[in-house]
Measured scan of single mutants.
Amino acid sequence: MAAGGDHGSPDSYRSPLASRYASPEMCFVFSDRYKFRTWRQLWLWLAEAEQTLGLPITDEQIQEMKSNLENIDFKMAAEEEKRLRHDVMAHVHTFGHCCPKAAGIIHLGATSCYVGDNTDLIILRNALDLLLPKLARVISRLADFAKERASLPTLGFTHFQPAQLTTVGKRCCLWIQDLCMDLQNLKRVRDDLRFRGVKGTTGTQASFLQLFEGDDHKVEQLDKMVTEKAGFKRAFIITGQTYTRKVDIEVLSVLASLGASVHKICTDIRLLANLKEMEEPFEKQQIGSSAMPYKRNPMRSERCCSLARHLMTLVMDPLQTASVQWFERTLDDSANRRICLAEAFLTADTILNTLQNISEGLVVYPKVIERRIRQELPFMATENIIMAMVKAGGSRQDCHEKIRVLSQQAASVVKQEGGDNDLIERIQVDAYFSPIHSQLDHLLDPSSFTGRASQQVQRFLEEEVYPLLKPYESVMKVKAELCL
Rank of each mutant, 00 (worst) to 15 (best):
residue 416 Q to H: 09
residue 337 R to D: 02
residue 185 N to S: 14
residue 299 M to P: 11
residue 103 A to G: 10
residue 335 A to E: 02
residue 341 L to G: 13
residue 431 A to K: 12
residue 326 W to E: 04
residue 226 V to Q: 01
residue 111 T to A: 00
residue 313 T to W: 10
residue 147 K to T: 11
residue 148 E to C: 11
residue 26 M to N: 00
residue 161 Q to H: 00
residue 168 V to L: 08
residue 474 S to E: 14
residue 159 H to K: 01
residue 427 I to S: 04
residue 86 H to E: 00
residue 279 E to Q: 03
residue 351 I to M: 15
residue 358 I to W: 04
residue 484 L to E: 13
residue 374 R to Y: 07
residue 147 K to E: 10
residue 312 M to Q: 10
residue 348 A to S: 13
residue 200 G to M: 03
residue 343 E to F: 03
residue 305 C to W: 02
residue 41 Q to A: 10
residue 450 T to M: 05
residue 63 Q to W: 10
residue 271 L to V: 09
residue 247 V to A: 12
residue 222 L to H: 03
residue 354 T to R: 01
residue 479 K to Q: 15
residue 85 R to C: 04
residue 459 R to W: 08
residue 230 A to S: 14
residue 345 F to I: 10
residue 176 I to T: 08
residue 376 E to S: 06
residue 187 K to E: 08
residue 158 T to Y: 01
residue 430 D to F: 03
residue 51 Q to Y: 06
residue 191 D to L: 08
residue 263 H to M: 08
residue 191 D to C: 09
residue 34 Y to S: 12
residue 481 E to S: 14
residue 355 L to T: 09
residue 252 L to S: 12
residue 194 R to I: 03
residue 272 L to F: 06
residue 412 S to D: 13
residue 301 S to I: 09
residue 416 Q to A: 11
residue 469 L to Y: 06
residue 160 F to G: 06
residue 135 L to R: 01
residue 96 G to N: 06
residue 380 M to P: 03
residue 249 I to F: 09
residue 127 A to W: 06
residue 85 R to P: 00
residue 90 A to C: 14
residue 247 V to I: 14
residue 264 K to Q: 07
residue 120 D to R: 02
residue 188 R to H: 11
residue 180 C to I: 15
residue 360 E to S: 09
residue 461 L to S: 04
residue 456 Q to D: 02
residue 324 V to A: 11
residue 28 F to L: 08
residue 370 E to A: 11
residue 263 H to R: 04
residue 443 L to Q: 04
residue 65 M to D: 00
residue 87 D to Q: 02
residue 361 G to E: 15
residue 216 D to Q: 09
residue 151 S to M: 11
residue 266 C to E: 09
residue 82 K to M: 13
residue 243 Y to A: 15
residue 21 Y to H: 00
residue 344 A to W: 04
residue 379 F to T: 03
residue 177 Q to Y: 13
residue 446 P to I: 09
residue 202 T to N: 08
residue 204 T to Q: 15
residue 277 E to L: 03
residue 415 K to V: 07
residue 237 I to V: 10
residue 177 Q to R: 02
residue 260 A to D: 02
residue 327 F to Q: 12
residue 282 F to A: 13
residue 145 F to N: 05
residue 334 S to C: 03
residue 231 G to Y: 07
residue 154 T to K: 01
residue 146 A to E: 00
residue 53 L to M: 13
residue 343 E to N: 13
residue 470 K to D: 14
residue 354 T to C: 15
residue 404 R to C: 11
residue 176 I to L: 13
residue 220 E to N: 12
residue 40 R to M: 03
residue 293 P to M: 02
residue 465 V to T: 07
residue 473 E to N: 15
residue 64 E to S: 13
residue 446 P to R: 04
residue 105 I to C: 11
residue 425 E to Q: 13
residue 58 T to D: 10
residue 296 R to F: 07
residue 131 L to C: 11
residue 446 P to W: 08
residue 346 L to V: 14
residue 158 T to C: 00
residue 217 H to D: 13
residue 193 L to W: 00
residue 349 D to W: 05
residue 255 L to P: 03
residue 156 G to I: 04
residue 61 Q to M: 12
residue 459 R to G: 13
residue 234 R to W: 06
residue 23 S to I: 05
residue 396 R to Y: 05
residue 56 P to G: 11
residue 114 Y to V: 02
residue 175 W to H: 00
residue 484 L to G: 11
residue 174 L to V: 13
residue 213 E to K: 15
residue 456 Q to K: 01
residue 431 A to G: 13
residue 176 I to F: 02
residue 151 S to C: 11
residue 352 L to T: 04
residue 45 W to L: 06
residue 183 L to Y: 13
residue 59 D to C: 13
residue 23 S to K: 13
residue 5 G to Y: 15
residue 427 I to N: 04
residue 422 D to R: 01
residue 104 G to R: 12
residue 119 T to F: 08
residue 253 S to C: 13
residue 39 W to G: 03
residue 354 T to L: 15
residue 208 F to K: 03
residue 214 G to M: 08
residue 16 P to V: 13
residue 345 F to D: 04
residue 331 L to S: 07
residue 457 V to K: 03
residue 27 C to R: 15
residue 165 L to C: 04
residue 180 C to S: 11
residue 218 K to R: 12
residue 47 A to F: 01
residue 280 E to W: 04
residue 83 R to E: 12
residue 454 S to C: 12
residue 204 T to L: 02
residue 266 C to T: 08
residue 125 R to M: 11
residue 294 Y to N: 06
residue 83 R to I: 10
residue 268 D to V: 06
residue 76 M to F: 07
residue 280 E to M: 09
residue 139 I to F: 06
residue 401 E to G: 10
residue 177 Q to P: 01
residue 54 G to T: 05
residue 436 I to L: 07
residue 3 A to V: 12
residue 245 R to D: 01
residue 14 R to W: 10
residue 172 C to A: 10
residue 227 T to N: 07
residue 84 L to N: 09
residue 71 N to K: 12
residue 115 V to Y: 00
residue 146 A to T: 04
residue 183 L to R: 03
residue 345 F to W: 03
residue 81 E to I: 00
residue 55 L to N: 05
residue 189 V to E: 08
residue 340 C to L: 09
residue 92 V to F: 07
residue 460 F to G: 05
residue 79 E to S: 10
residue 57 I to T: 02
residue 347 T to S: 14
residue 306 S to H: 05
residue 435 P to C: 09
residue 55 L to A: 02
residue 87 D to R: 00
residue 144 D to C: 14
residue 462 E to V: 14
residue 4 G to M: 14
residue 191 D to W: 08
residue 414 V to G: 04
residue 352 L to R: 02
residue 407 S to D: 02
residue 32 D to N: 15
residue 370 E to G: 11
residue 327 F to L: 09
residue 456 Q to W: 02
residue 13 Y to T: 14
residue 232 F to L: 12
residue 302 E to F: 08
residue 104 G to F: 08
residue 44 L to V: 13
residue 85 R to K: 13
residue 325 Q to R: 02
residue 93 H to N: 14
residue 286 Q to I: 01
residue 158 T to A: 00
residue 292 M to Y: 04
residue 452 R to I: 11
residue 447 S to C: 15
residue 428 Q to H: 14
residue 6 D to G: 07
residue 148 E to Y: 11
residue 157 F to V: 00
residue 291 A to Q: 03
residue 137 R to Y: 02
residue 293 P to R: 03
residue 133 P to F: 12
residue 50 E to Q: 07
residue 111 T to D: 02
residue 437 H to F: 05
residue 452 R to L: 10
residue 37 R to L: 14
residue 59 D to S: 11
residue 137 R to A: 15
residue 54 G to H: 12
residue 459 R to K: 09
residue 479 K to G: 15
residue 335 A to H: 00
residue 435 P to A: 08
residue 312 M to I: 13
residue 57 I to Q: 01
residue 206 A to D: 00
residue 171 R to C: 00
